[in-house]
Simulated assay, not measured.
Amino acid sequence: MTTQTFDTTKAEAFAGRMFEIFNSAALSLMMSIGHRTQLFDTMADLPPSTSQQVAAAAGLNERYVREWLGAMVTGGFVTYNPLTQTYVLPIEYAAFLTRSATPNNLALVAQYIPVLASVEEQVIECFYKGGGVPYSEFQRFHEVMAEDSGQSTVTALFDQILPLVPGLTEALEQGIDVLDLGCGSGRALSTLAANFPKSRFTGYDFSEVTIATANHEARSQNLSNIRFQVQDAATLNEHDRYDLITTFDAIHDQARPDIVLRNIYQALRSDGVYLMQDIHASSQVEGNLEHPIAPWLYTISCMHCMTVSLAYGGMGLGTVWGNEQALKMLAEAGFKRVELKQVPQDFLNDYYITYKQ
């Protein structure tokens, strides 16, 4: 047995880091509240203001706003003048905390923390008994995911994502058949349908709630070239039907991603293309040591993506299934050629441009 020598300096540094983590965890909750109550958006438009003025402008209770401001000041988000008792959100910080900062609004991402924490008890039970936590237990997860993807994927669609596939924009303008599998509330697909009226768009998702939202939004936009339907991707049984199939961050949390990828292969026409967006990571933990948000990805996986897959008797690949596993499974599904690409300023995602021949 190897005997370790206790390093006091190392221990004290680790203890200090723990307090930093506790503060950051607390601030993430306050960030979520600041986003959901639009306090960040309100303060971005205010001159130096008292807590009462901030609360009045936001239409909120002053006592709660004052305590929130205390967290924001001591956490370094907001500056405070004790002489005038006024608060200011610096414009440099507002550039990452407000809705007008889209696609750089990081405050909305903080919403995942309370959402995931809401299922802690169920996940802990799974540590002892196995199994998983189903989608139905996650309040607001799809709502937050829709807002997040609306900021990241939708805003990058035309300038960055579509150009990854040569000739795709031109084909969409001329008119092709498109399927988005795991479409969620349909923001990406509705955006495409609105901009390419000659193409025909279909969105499938497992969730009745998100499909109802997607259909409502499509009707409100008077989109006649799009349809949304509840469909389990693992039971999809269509052949040679689509010129383009897309999945945006949807494969890794499927119960049976192997079956889903084979179904996509079958549904795609021989000269079609499958565009898969998924998490940029390695399948091996040692390959993620330098990943800037690896702990975040493994936590999201444990608390959502892996556990929902296991809840339905699935493979439980998890968020960090990685490039190696993804390429292997695409080949096993029958795809002959895969081009792995990334877009500028997006360290989180990879784009697999996949062909049947």
Rank of each mutant, 00 (worst) to 15 (best):
I33F: 09
G322F: 05
G313T: 09
E20P: 01
Y64F: 13
N237G: 05
K129L: 08
D253E: 14
V308C: 00
V133Q: 05
L192V: 03
L330G: 02
H304W: 13
E332C: 05
I279E: 11
Q221C: 06
V343T: 14
A188E: 14
Y312S: 04
L310N: 00
M1G: 15
Y242R: 10
Q151W: 03
M18N: 05
E332R: 10
I161W: 03
G131T: 09
T42I: 07
G186A: 06
P114E: 03
E67N: 07
Q254N: 09
D45Q: 12
S24P: 06
Q139M: 08
N323D: 12
S224G: 12
Q151S: 15
F228M: 12
E20M: 09
P257H: 02
G130A: 03
C305I: 00
I353V: 15
E238G: 05
K356R: 15
L69A: 07
C305P: 02
T8H: 07
V123W: 10
F14N: 10
L168R: 06
L244Y: 12
V343S: 04
V260G: 06
A71M: 11
S152Y: 07
R99C: 10
L189P: 02
V230C: 09
D205G: 07
D243A: 12
Q277C: 11
G182E: 07
V285M: 12
F77D: 02
T102N: 11
V78W: 04
K129Q: 07
A15P: 00
V54W: 01
K328G: 00
A193N: 12
A267Y: 10
L97H: 09
P114V: 06
F40H: 01
V109F: 12
P292Q: 08
A326L: 02
N195W: 06
A193P: 04
R63M: 08
C305S: 15
R269S: 03
V273Y: 05
T213R: 12
E147T: 08
E12P: 00
F40P: 00
Q229N: 09
V109K: 11
T155E: 13
P134F: 00
L106C: 02
S220L: 13
L181Q: 04
I91C: 02
V115D: 07
M306W: 13
M43C: 09
Q325D: 05
T246M: 15
I21E: 07
D278Y: 01
A107V: 06
K198D: 08
R200N: 11
R256T: 07
G322C: 01
V115K: 06
E324M: 02
G322Q: 05
D271E: 15
N323E: 14
H142A: 14
Q160R: 15
F248K: 04
E324G: 05
L189G: 10
P197A: 11
T155P: 03
A107H: 12
A25Y: 14
T8G: 00
H280C: 13
D350M: 04
P257S: 01
H304S: 04
E67I: 10
A255P: 15
C126V: 04
L83N: 07
T79H: 06
V343H: 01
P82F: 13
P114Q: 06
P103Y: 09
S224E: 15
G334T: 07
A233E: 02
E208Y: 10
C302W: 04
G175D: 05
M303L: 15
E12Q: 10
L60R: 15
P82L: 08
P163T: 13
A311H: 04
T169V: 14
I113P: 06
R241P: 00
A110M: 04
